[in-house]
Write a protein that binds this DNA or RNA. Structure first.
Length: 968
RNA sequence: GCCGCUAUGGCGGAAUUGGUAGACGCGCUGGAUUCAAAAUCCAGUUCCUCCGGGAGUGUGGGUUCGAUUCCCACUGGCGGUACCA
């Protein structure tokens, strides 16, 4: 039995594959446990050490639950559709299906190297037609349903058609794009096309012209969460707002349920807060204002109807069509100028400048409560998408309205007296109403109710809830995604492709570059034109495939349904979902949406997909830089040289091959990115230092690797080095370092394969867990991995003696040894349940240290520890399990049970404190009463020393905790 | 600005309902072994100290016999979000 981690890793990884050790059980007699990892997008750069953090954590839980007698579903798949694969394809000319196949194979190999216990027979790939057949089916179902607000669920469109035929929109309470009024006769008189257009107003997947995030560089529209700071998340290209005809999902219909559902799931507070913010619920009132000289009204949404007497003007969003109708001839020029100004401003300008701008339309509205005449302005600060795109402006109680009023010289009427609330800001709903007619003297919350009631009574509005969340734009003018399963017939009526004709696969295309706003599929004419009509050429965003994949794993090969009823009834939902926090809002929110929709259809038995969510922390890596300087020699020449980061300008230097002089810096000098693989991390005088050694530079000159090629181009900027010498006489340069996200572009990604090859998978797994709490961000550093390796070997050596032979004996364990074992069982069992893996590793180390001290080589103690360590170090555990004569796999062995009896202590070491300061400890019988303990303490000579000459005012004794003498 | 998270030795981090702060590991120091080195093993390692002790969990207050833990007010770091009416 050699401690040869590479051989042991290989042996067992092979065995597991051969014996399908991790096959999901098919009998349904045992309780189920579903542990899911967020499936990765298989990029060309492979996994770095940050990815496995979550995979290892979930793997530990999966193995733990298996040993505890659960049927465990622990699958892995690939989120293979989407922009990156397509961008890569365009750049390299390799078809995305090919690069995806290569990358998924690589990912699979890397995951196997880590010893992850996935059931690969259940793997899914979102770009596989067998999979996306059901993505298309689900979205088709969304298209075929509308949202009945009274029933508070999705219902088939056919039922809506029936209702419209009989009653028109009368009594209809549906989630809709706009409020319509259609009689039953009108509806019955409509032709197919007209009906289809009307139904689009209600469908949960609908097509409409709306302002969308258009990214010219990517040639496609993007969802709100794909845009960050006015730029595309992928590629960082500028994004503009543009009205376009697009497919959307009516997520707004589910806003309230998505909010309410957060109560029943176990997500972190931070994550819940993010979802709550994204949904952005606010309660207030919809108020109709008459417009002078116009038939229709101006509707506004306000959260502060109580301040209506303080309204002194109205503002509407510049984009609204109403602007044109309201503008008077005298104001026409001013409005046109302003609209032109707004049109010129990009999202970025708007966000960065935040100026007070606007223009007067010339029109006036009338305050429905007091008849006050209110000028109507347009201004950028009112957003077309929120509420009705119009506001009543109350400058006394809103910062923006106030700034606007000040700039345009509009009257400000104070309506809320906040003098009772000194710390209150304008945003706080606090104070007493003044100058407000019947509201005077009321506290704000009371006044809000009273004002809303009055407005309703007058028929001038109603209480309303508003959400910030926008419907989800679900079209992409790109190739590498699921085609919408829609065909437009000869009347341009969109019709669902029937399920028997699914999937709608992508046409083979050589060139799938997107051309401004037109899907590349448009060019595949023989694909587009079918006997039934023209195919929709937009594809779906990547989220289409990822928002339901957890269901497919339950029944991955079912060709008759996205998941079989029996399978979903058994597996139900995900018990533990592990993944990165970057998907906290979009992915989780959208899959919750689809889940709730499928719940409405009776296709899933639970209302939430993920019971518990764990966001693993990001592992950052050092980003290192080499410093370029100039050596100014006596002859006045400047030579570029590489210098240590700690060398200050003006320092005299002598550089081999160049000469002597001193360091100068100018704009050509400074930091240059250095690939991490050439950087050596050392610790000198308690300071961590990052160095570039001479031998690494030589290595970089020879290596074939990409990083080396990049580094060579960097190093060409100077061919002289101002080396320093370390204690061993080796030449190096000091580098500067910052912490950052691991990425290929920063050349700081560390490959887990390299670590596994050196230390073995078990060491890597335990080391990653040992870094700290799994949900916290931490920098990657290899310092410390040797400690874990040493521990594993020390643990191994408990079993193995002279000549690498198993040395375990059948002696009966001592009470002390049993205490060590059962303390470990208790700690590990509890901590895995708490997802506190770092403390589990510590517990193993402590137990190992103690067993070594006790020279324990007894089977009855050591054998159970193998089963305990199996989730963490599956390979070594399997090897030891086999050596001890265990049958089958250790991963199907029972989990050891803790026997509390062995944990009991005869004595407890009491800390004895005086006035709260612990001075000494005393061993006192563990079952001593309060009085016994106090007496024992008082009897101690040391204690008496502390009490000498003092009055004991009080003695606090907490049995099995501590003793505290309060003395004066 | 708002929301969330977070702050403990030289470093990563531990500490049950408030009860011995610094477990475990790294690093460092000394020793053993060795021709030597690596590896391994043993001991020490929060800081200050006149060796009696004293201080100490981001800062300032509070509750308590007792606070890393609970409360109030700040400060720094990380993440999200932002003219949302």
């Amino acid at each position: 039995m050699k401690f040869d981690v590479q051989a042991i890793d290989k042996k067992w990884q092979h065995y597991w594959k051969e014996h399908k050790t991790y096959a999901t059980p098919t009998d349904q007699t045992k309780p189920k446990f579903y542990v899911l990892d967020m499936f990765p997008y298989p990029s060309g750069s492979g996994l770095h050490v940050g990815h496995p953090l979550g995979y290892i954590g979930s793997d530990i839980v999966a193995r733990f639950k298996r040993q505890r007698g659960f049927n465990v579903l622990h699958p892995m798949g690939f989120d293979a559709f989407g922009l990156p694969a397509e961008q890569y394809a365009i750049d390299t000319g390799v078809h995305p299906s090919e690069s995806t196949a290569v990358n998924t194979t690589r990912y699979r190999e890397q995951m196997d190297t880590l010893g992850l216990s996935f059931d690969w027979d259940r793997s899914v790939n979102t770009s596989d037609p067998k999979y996306f057949k059901w993505t298309q089916w689900i979205i088709g179902q969304v298209f075929d349903h509308w949202y009945d607000r009274d029933a508070d669920r999705a219902r088939p469109i056919a039922e809506l058609v029936e209702q419209l035929k009989q009653r028109g929109t009368d009594g209809l309470n549906a989630a809709e794009t706009e409020s319509l009024d259609v009689s039953a006769e009108d509806f019955r008189a409509m032709n197919e096309k007209e009906r289809s257009d009307l139904l689009m107003n209600y469908r949960l997947a609908f097509r409409s012209v709306s302002y969308v995030n258009w990214c010219e560089a990517l040639g496609t529209v993007l969802a709100n969460d794909e845009v960050k700071d006015g730029r595309s998340e992928r590629g960082n290209h500028p994004v503009e707002q543009r009205p376009m005809l697009q497919w959307s999902l009516r997520i707004t219909a589910y806003a309230e349920r998505l909010l309410a559902g957060l109560q029943e799931v176990d997500y972190s507070e931070g994550l819940k807060a993010q979802q709550v913010n994204w949904i952005g619920k606010s309660t207030g009132a919809l108020v109709h204002f008459d417009i002078e000289g116009h038939d229709h009204q101006l509707d506004i949404f306000t959260t502060r109807p109580d301040t209506i007497f303080g309204a002194t003007f109205m503002v509407i969003a510049p984009e609204l069509e109403l602007v044109d109708q309201l503008t008077t001839p005298e104001q026409r020029q001013e409005i046109d100028d302003y609209l032109a100004y707004v049109g010129r401003r990009s999202e970025l300008d708007r966000m960065s400048e935040n100026k007070v701008t606007g223009a007067f339309t010339g029109a006036y509205a009338t305050n429905p409560l007091n008849g006050q005449r209110l000028p109507i302005y347009i201004a950028e600060y009112v957003l077309k998408d929120y509420g009705t795109g119009a506001i009543m402006a109350v400058p006394s109680d809103d910062d923006r309205d106030k700034r606007f009023a000040e700039k345009f010289g509009i009257e400000i009427i104070d309506v809320v007296d906040k003098s009772n609330y000194p710390g209150a800001t304008l945003k706080d709903k606090l104070g007493i109403l003044i100058n407000s007619d019947f509201l005077n003297g009321m506290e704000v919350p009371e006044a809000i109710l009273a004002a809303t009631e009055r407005i309703e009574a007058l028929g001038r509005g109603k209480a309303q809830v508003n959400y910030r969340i926008r419907d989800l734009v679900f079209s992409r003018q790109r190739y590498w995604g699921e085609p919408w399963p829609i065909i437009y017939d000869e009347h341009d009526v969109p019709r669902l492709v029937p399920v028997e004709d699914l999937p709608v696969t992508l046409p083979e295309m050589e060139d799938f570059r997107a051309v401004s706003g037109v899907s590349p599929l448009e060019r595949a004419q023989e694909w587009v034109n079918t006997p039934l009509g023209r195919r929709e050429t937009d594809t779906m965003p990547a989220t289409a495939g990822s928002n339901w994949y957890y269901l497919r794993y339950m029944d991955p090969h079912n060709d008759g349904a996205f998941v079989g009823a029996e399978a979903v009834d058994y597996w139900k939902d995900v018990d533990l979902y592990v993944g990165g926090a970057e998907h906290a809002v979009s992915h989780i929110l959208y899959s919750r949406l689809i889940h709730k929709f499928l719940y409405d259809l009776g296709r899933v038995p639970t209302s939430e997909p993920y019971k518990k969510l764990l966001n693993q922390g990001m592992i950052g890596g050092p980003i290192s830089y080499i410093h370029l300087g100039l050596l100014l020699t006596q002859d006045g020449q400047r030579h570029p040289i590489w210098v240590s980061s700690d060398v200050a300008e003006g320092t005299p230097l002598t550089v081999d091959g160049v000469g002597s002089g001193h360091l100068v810096l100018d704009e050509s000098t400074g930091q240059r990115l250095t690939p991490l693989r050439f950087v050596t991390e050392t610790s000198v005088n308690n300071e961590t230092s990052f160095r570039l050694y001479h031998h690494s530079v030589e290595e970089a000159q020879r290596m074939e690797h990409q990083d080396a090629a990049y580094f060579r181009t960097i190093l060409q900027q100077a061919n002289a080095f101002a080396w320093k010498t370390d204690r061993e006489g080796k030449a190096y340069l000091e580098l500067s370092v910052e912490q950052g996200k691991m990425s290929k572009r920063k050349y700081n990604a560390v490959n887990p394969d390299d670590i596994c090859a050196r230390y073995g998978a078990d060491c890597f797994r335990m080391y990653e867990m040992f870094l700290g709490p799994i949900d916290q961000a931490k920098p990657w550093s290899v310092s410390g991995i040797d400690g874990v390796f040493r521990f594993l070997r020390r643990y191994w050596n408990l079993f193995v003696g002279e000549g690498d032979r198993l040395s375990v004996t059948d002696e009966e364990p001592s009470r002390e040894e049993l205490k060590v074992l059962h303390t470990l069982i208790k700690k590990v069992t509890e901590d895995i349940d708490k997802l506190s893996f770092n403390t589990c590793v510590s517990a193993f180390m402590v137990a190992t240290n103690e067993l070594i001290k006790l020279k324990c080589g007894k089977r009855k103690v050591l054998e159970p520890t193998v089963r305990l360590i199996a989730p963490f170090a599956p390979h070594l555990a399997e090897e030891l399990h086999q050596a001890l004569g265990g049958s089958n796999s250790v991963h199907h062995a029972d989990w050891p049970e803790v026997v509390e009896e062995y944990l009991k202590e005869d004595t407890f070491t009491y800390p004895i404190a005086f006035n709260g300061k612990t001075r000494l400890t005393l061993d006192i019988s563990a079952d001593a009463t309060k009085q016994d303990v106090e007496d024992a303490a008082r009897a101690d000579t040391q204690v008496q020393g502390y009490l000498e000459g003092k009055t004991v005012r009080k003695v606090i004794v907490v049995p099995r905790r501590m003793v505290n003498f309060v003395v004066g």
